[in-house]
Amino acid sequence: MSTIYNILNVLIVGCGNIAGRFDMSRPSTDWPLTHAGAYHRDHRFQVIACVDPHEEVRSQFMKFWSIPVGFQAIDEISHKNHQFDVISICSPTHCHAHDLEIAISLSPQLIFCEKPTTASGIETEKLVRQCKKSDIHLAVNYTRRWDQDIRKLQTNIQNNQWGNLRAVVGYYNKGLLNNGSHLIDLLNFLLGKINIIKVGKPIYDFFDYDPTVPMWLETEDGCPIHLVAGHAQDYALFEIQFIFAKGVLVMEDGGIFWRSRQVIESEIFKGYRILTDSIKNTGHYPHAMLQAIDNIYRAITQNEYLYSTGDTALMTQFFCERIIQESISIV
């Protein structure tokens, strides 16, 4: 017996990498990493239109993803002639505020926006309020909130499965807002409120407006957190190490892999406890985009709780902006 479900119509604004191009050069059997790829795989959605100012880019995107209608600008779209259940904002960050304004006027049920939501926390706050006033769900793509490994870790921390958390060390590059904000948002999700203890000098390794900043943070109960700044010209870097009383857990390559080490009695030094060699496991991060789309569908049709919202993204953005301001003031 076939399952009957409502099909939701989608508009994608921006036809770049995260919109769908990352998946255009990958096997169709791989887990989708993009908005278009995830919508295409989940048959409860259909992408019926897209927007991009570059005609060749837009045409290629439409052809690959079988999208029937394309626009040069979101301003061309009229609510009277086009109705969308979901609008994905995948345009460059400096376009987000304008695109979100128009998207809200089109009255979708949900807007799924890339991060940072806008280029300014004040601007984001205004648009979050507008979405609430218009009764529009706002999801922001801090993808790891949909990663089942992260949600399981949150439960394990709450249940004290690994014992007390002693320290956290994270590593990132390519800008605090662009990349490091994922770490900040992840820490907020897993550990609750985070306090700033000290920030280091800014490192301009990719964007001239978004430095990578080393920092020392602390949880409300005093657990130390050190976020180490790398350099984007060397290689991509996004890892985090959790040091627990009962062992060490490390997220590698953004969540593609995880390593764990358990505590055992030393066979060499009597009375000492040591860590075992690390065990490497493949993570579920590649599944996260499909999990996000599933959460979005259920939020619309069943009023399910969204794992990443305008409010949680706003908290992360204000936190990152404060760190950047403190860092810049050092120079």
Rank of each mutant, 00 (worst) to 15 (best):
residue 113 C to H: 04
residue 93 T to F: 00
residue 112 F to Y: 01
residue 136 I to H: 07
residue 85 D to P: 04
residue 159 N to K: 14
residue 73 A to P: 02
residue 106 L to K: 09
residue 126 K to T: 13
residue 95 C to G: 00
residue 167 A to D: 14
residue 115 K to D: 02
residue 114 E to I: 00
residue 75 D to G: 02
residue 98 H to E: 08
residue 105 S to H: 05
residue 129 R to W: 11
residue 96 H to F: 04
residue 85 D to M: 07
residue 128 V to N: 00
residue 145 R to A: 10
residue 101 E to F: 09
residue 157 I to F: 08
residue 109 Q to F: 02
residue 133 K to C: 06
residue 119 A to L: 06
residue 86 V to H: 12
residue 126 K to F: 12
residue 74 I to A: 04
residue 133 K to G: 09
residue 166 R to G: 01
residue 135 D to I: 06
residue 125 E to R: 15
residue 145 R to L: 11
residue 135 D to E: 11
residue 153 L to K: 01
residue 150 I to A: 00
residue 167 A to I: 03
residue 86 V to P: 11
residue 95 C to D: 02
residue 156 N to V: 03
residue 100 L to R: 01
residue 167 A to L: 05
residue 166 R to P: 00
residue 147 D to L: 08
residue 129 R to G: 06
residue 94 H to L: 03
residue 133 K to I: 14
residue 165 L to D: 10
residue 150 I to V: 15
residue 137 H to C: 05
residue 136 I to Q: 06
residue 152 K to L: 14
residue 112 F to E: 11
residue 129 R to S: 11
residue 163 G to K: 14
residue 125 E to A: 14
residue 116 P to C: 09
residue 105 S to A: 10
residue 158 Q to V: 03
residue 157 I to N: 03
residue 153 L to I: 09
residue 139 A to F: 08
residue 113 C to Y: 02
residue 102 I to L: 10
residue 158 Q to Y: 11
residue 92 P to H: 01
residue 115 K to G: 02
residue 98 H to C: 02
residue 117 T to P: 01
residue 156 N to W: 12
residue 108 P to F: 04
residue 79 H to T: 03
residue 137 H to R: 12
residue 167 A to F: 13
residue 102 I to T: 15
residue 92 P to D: 00
residue 166 R to T: 09
residue 146 W to P: 02
residue 87 I to M: 09
residue 77 I to N: 05
residue 164 N to W: 15
residue 151 R to C: 08
residue 148 Q to S: 13
residue 102 I to E: 04
residue 82 H to C: 09
residue 129 R to T: 08
residue 122 I to N: 09
residue 129 R to N: 12
residue 143 T to K: 08
